[in-house]
Simulated scan of single mutants.
Amino acid sequence: MSMSDPTRSPGAETPDPVGDVLDADRLQAELLEETRPPHAGPISQVAAAVVALAAGAAGVLGSLALGLGRLTQPGPGLWPFAISVVIVVLSATLVVTGRGLEDTERFSKSSLLTAIAVVTLVALAALLPLIGFEIPSLLLVFVWLRWLGRESWRSSIVISIVTVAAFYVLFVVLLQIPLPRLI
């Protein structure tokens, strides 16, 4: 706008798009700092990396027990082995570099949600060979949606049923994977 613009009121400031962007960035940074939990410290960072390293090592051993097969005929343990090796490498890197990082959070009430999620996954793994994948998967998705995601009862029920039905069609019908199942 020029100074002689008739629609401009006298004494009005010229808009500063750069300043507005900087103000928005500053405000967003302040909001993130207010909601971010406090840092747990370097010991927690390294401890979390060691736990992930142990889980990766257990995955390597479990996948070797399943059998890796050959490249032309991969065994059931090949992909779990590859993923477990990546977990081990990344966790070992975090063990070495973890003391300088500041991205771990102190345990809080919201940390319980993560613990509940892990417990439900372990329950799924335990129930899968006993009663098939349909009921444990349905319960897992429902619990995650309703109590961890705080979805409504209706959407939790509908999404859980649709998800398990989609998995059934994909893995059992289309891919013909021999999952333990009731149906």
Rank of each mutant, 00 (worst) to 15 (best):
T120P: 05
V85K: 11
L90E: 05
I131Q: 07
L128W: 13
P80E: 13
L94W: 05
G77A: 02
F167D: 01
L130E: 10
V95S: 13
A57D: 02
V119W: 04
W147L: 08
E151Q: 14
P76T: 00
L121A: 15
L101N: 12
G132S: 02
P74Q: 07
L138G: 02
V172E: 03
V141I: 10
I116C: 13
S137M: 07
W153N: 09
A123I: 13
I161M: 15
L71R: 09
S63P: 01
A48W: 13
L53C: 11
F171E: 00
A166K: 12
L61M: 14
V60S: 09
L148N: 13
G149F: 10
V60L: 12
I177Q: 00
I43P: 05
L139I: 12
V96E: 13
W144F: 14
L113E: 07
E102C: 02
I131P: 04
G98R: 03
P80C: 13
E151M: 12
V46E: 05
V86A: 15
S91K: 09
I135P: 12
K109E: 07
L145N: 06
V86T: 13
T163M: 05
T93N: 12
A123T: 11
I135L: 15
P42H: 14
V118R: 01
L127G: 00
E105A: 06
T104F: 02
L127N: 01
G98N: 06
R150H: 10
L148R: 14
Q176A: 03
R146A: 09
P129W: 03
T163E: 04
R146L: 08
F142I: 02
V162K: 15
P80R: 10
A52Q: 03
S156M: 08
V50T: 09
F107M: 12
W147G: 07
